[in-house]
Amino acid sequence: MTLQDVAMHQYASTKFTDTGSEPAFDEVMVEKTITLYLNGNRLTSIVTTPGFGKELAVGFLITEGLIRSLKDLEEIREMDDRVELRAGIAQDSELEYELRSSGGLGLRRSICDAEVFVPVAQNFSIGVLLASLKYLDDETQKKTGGAHTATLVGADGTLRYKAVDIGRHNAVDKVVGQAVLHGDDLSRMFLISSGRQPAGMVMKAARAGIPLIISKAAPISSGIDCARQTNVTLCCYATREKTKAFSSPDRIIIGSP
């Protein structure tokens, strides 16, 4: 597993309490904008944490439904502030965008893609799911308080991929991109996300073929609806002791898988 180097800058601040003030210093996450080009056309610009730009771009194409696998991708070129991709598909010149609850842009589609359905091919032990929440712990979040984390974990509890970003959508795209570029089978892993789970987040996992999402955060009604339609197991309000499954609970087993 390759870990992402997260860029941080130290800023001076003034700490105030009810008894006075004092100088302080804080680590703050750095952001940059990268632009994605698909088949020579500008696709979108994404505000992200520097690092894993190529993985972010590939993950974005997968999770937004523009390509289905690495086989669709012919070329990837990453430069300082842009990633150019060439795919053997016809790009819709009339792509529309939507502003999502995170403030980020995604491609506008029906809320849930009717053709996306994730079969029950892999079960997951509740013990493994709850124990794996430890992978959300991250020094960047402890230092800055501004990070979202996404991880992909195998059914045996092995951490496979991890990404940290200022955006919860970006973090998911980065781990999906890592897995796709390594040729791994996403249907045998589950996704741990630090963020809320509206439709846009759930559909990223569903399009990538990820069968289960677990998050410490809350679901949104659109996310539950999409999870039920696509047969993704959506677990939220997770702690080290419990979680609640809002869809497809049959993938979760008590005991060892």
Rank of each mutant, 00 (worst) to 15 (best):
I34G: 04
T35I: 00
T35V: 04
T35P: 00
L36Q: 05
Y37A: 01
Y37L: 09
L38G: 00
L38S: 00
L38H: 02
N39I: 02
G40R: 01
G40N: 05
R42T: 12
L43N: 05
I46R: 07
I46N: 06
V47H: 05
T48I: 14
T48R: 15
T49V: 06
P50T: 06
P50S: 03
G51Y: 07
F52K: 09
F52S: 07
F52H: 12
F52D: 12
G53A: 15
E55C: 01
E55K: 11
L56D: 03
L56S: 05
V58K: 07
F60E: 02
L61M: 12
L61A: 11
L61K: 05
I62N: 03
I62V: 04
E64N: 15
L66G: 03
I67A: 01
I67H: 00
I67Q: 12
R68E: 15
S69N: 11
K71T: 09
D72F: 03
L73T: 00
L73E: 01
L73P: 00
E74V: 08
E74M: 08
E75S: 13
R77I: 13
R77F: 07
E78R: 07
E78I: 05
E78A: 11
M79V: 15
M79I: 14
D81Y: 11
R82C: 10
R82H: 14
V83H: 09
E84C: 05
E84N: 14
E84S: 08
E84K: 10
E84Q: 07
L85Y: 03
R86M: 05
A87H: 00
A87W: 04
A87Q: 02
A87E: 00
G88Y: 06
G88D: 13
I89W: 04
I89S: 03
I89E: 01
A90C: 09
A90H: 12
Q91Y: 05
L95I: 03
L95Q: 02
E96D: 14
Y97E: 06
Y97L: 10
Y97Q: 04
L99Q: 01
S102Y: 06
G103I: 11
G103Q: 10
G103F: 09
G103P: 03
G104C: 14
G104M: 14
G104A: 15
L105F: 08
L105C: 01
G106R: 01
L107H: 03
R109S: 13
R109L: 08
S110P: 09
I111Q: 09
I111N: 04
D113M: 08
E115D: 15
E115M: 08
E115S: 14
V116H: 04
V116M: 06
F117C: 13
V118Q: 00
V118E: 10
P119V: 00
V120M: 07
V120N: 12
V120I: 09
A121D: 12
A121N: 14
Q122T: 15
Q122E: 11
N123Y: 13
S125L: 02
I126K: 15
G127K: 12
G127T: 14
G127M: 11
G127L: 03
G127V: 06
V128G: 03
V128D: 04
L129I: 10
L129V: 04
L129G: 02
